[in-house]
Design a protein around this nucleic acid. Structure first.
Lengths: 249, 249
DNA sequence: ATCTCTCCATGATCTGGATCAAAACGCCCC
DNA sequence: GGGGCGTTTTGATCCAGATCATGGAGAGAT
């Protein structure tokens, strides 16, 4: 069981105000713009969004916020990976997902976060004041529509994950996870032979409702059987068909 | 394992057009209006919605649509209960939820449904042409905002259910289900001593990632221990504290 | 180079819930 | 009332994956 992570020192640490236009990394040259919620906006609307945007950096293994915290901000991830999780009183945890570039954090627009978010790698984020963002979403129809697209897409993924957690065997769960993660990474970086796994075995286990031993044994067996290959900080999928077959049942 | 349910004979069976205003059950006197998506609309907007609304009735144990079907319509439930589920190729199923009055079916606004919906009881629905409804949502800002509220609320529930499926023991799952179901029913009918359970044991099991035997044994034990009482078509919760304690761990 | 710390792998054993089997209970239809 | 059928209950047994235990490998720190 992992201990508590350090929280970023304060709400403004690592922030670069971008409103004045002096900021180097503007939306126009943003790598994830087409995938993120911002894609919904017209050129002049982008400018309005930029006015309430603060770019921030989070070091690896740092808490962005904890479940129950007042949700002062919402975020778009521009680089790096975060782990989103809910915790039970006795220490059991469920990793509800991993956020990667283009993902929006805080779709619920609720007063308080329903989960915790921790960086696994160094992370860059666009940070928006929640109230201001909500106001903008209520003015700009395209933005609200885009938020809804994101939320309902997430809902579909959540339902698919319910099937994994409720009805799939251990091996199927791990295979489904690897294929799904590969798909998401491919969308960002294009098809690649090697698959980076920034999360640890315990994180995968807590995502799939398994123990770290079961995840480790499953991956070890696949390595022995040349289905995957161990590479530093990730794996290479040698026999994708075998994984797909495993998921198909 | 349950067999396939009969599908309603055709897309227009049991439909009552309501556009002309001759329909008895208009939105103004709708019991679930304040809970449903329609609550977002102004009086004149309601009229526009009413123009694309068809009231329909579905008998008990009948399919409304199957996963993968083209999503021609979306729905608001006005009475009765439906079961929403995803199926695996080999017959395993995950009940992703139960839809009750006020719930919206088709939040994803996708071309195809990602799950199947079957009535457990006789059901009344407001049926909307998906395209027309989507058009209206893009015109009426309040409606889109309301859809997003519904979707992000559902997302939060889905994440909570992931914790149940991924990390809770059998007894905790059943207790969490009963309390959650009681809460939802209370919102509709007010606090009531008896709790109707329109779904069968197998449905509960498939919702909680358990077998029917485990659900049955858990309920039977609680009946022996006077935590709940068996009543026709439901139960009466005698010791809610005991259930809450079970969920708290 | 050694110490410490965290993460991962792997073997041995245990167990919660699944699976298998068989009554018992409605409930509808005749 | 009685027969058929789907659902639920209850008991006996099994097993996939959890738990327990140990060792190893890498990454910093000094």
């Amino acid at each position: 069981m992992e201990g508590h992570l350090p929280t970023s020192p304060g709400p403004l640490s690592g922030l670069t105000p971008c409103g004045g236009g002096q900021c180097a990394s503007v939306c126009a040259e943003c790598r994830v713009r087409l995938y993120a919620v911002c894609a919904a906006l017209e050129r002049d609307e982008i400018n309005e969004l930029e006015r309430i945007t603060q770019h921030m950096t989070l070091p690896a293994k740092t808490a962005l916020f904890h479940a129950g915290d007042a949700a002062a901000s919402v975020y778009t991830v521009t680089s790096g990976t975060l782990r989103l999780q809910r915790d039970l009183a006795d220490g059991r945890r469920q990793v509800i997902g991993f956020a990667i570039p283009g993902d929006f954090i805080g779709l619920a627009m609720d007063d308080h976060f329903g989960f915790s978010a921790d960086s696994l790698t160094p992370v860059n984020l666009c940070r928006f004041d929640r109230q201001a963002f909500a106001r903008l979403a209520h003015e700009k129809h395209g933005l609200m529509g885009r938020l809804h697209d994101f939320a309902s897409h997430e809902l579909g993924l959540a339902q698919e994950h319910m099937v994994v957690l409720g009805r799939r065997r251990a091996e199927e769960r791990v295979a489904a996870f690897l294929l799904r993660w590969r798909e998401r990474m491919a969308r960002l970086t294009g098809a690649s032979a090697t698959l980076a796994l920034p999360m640890g075995r315990q994180d995968i286990a807590d995502h799939l409702g398994l123990t770290i031993e079961t995840v480790s044994r499953t991956l070890a067996r696949w390595m022995r059987e040349k289905v995957i290959l161990d590479v530093p900080d990730g794996i290479r999928i040698l026999d994708q068909g075998r994984l797909e077959q495993t998921v198909a049942g």
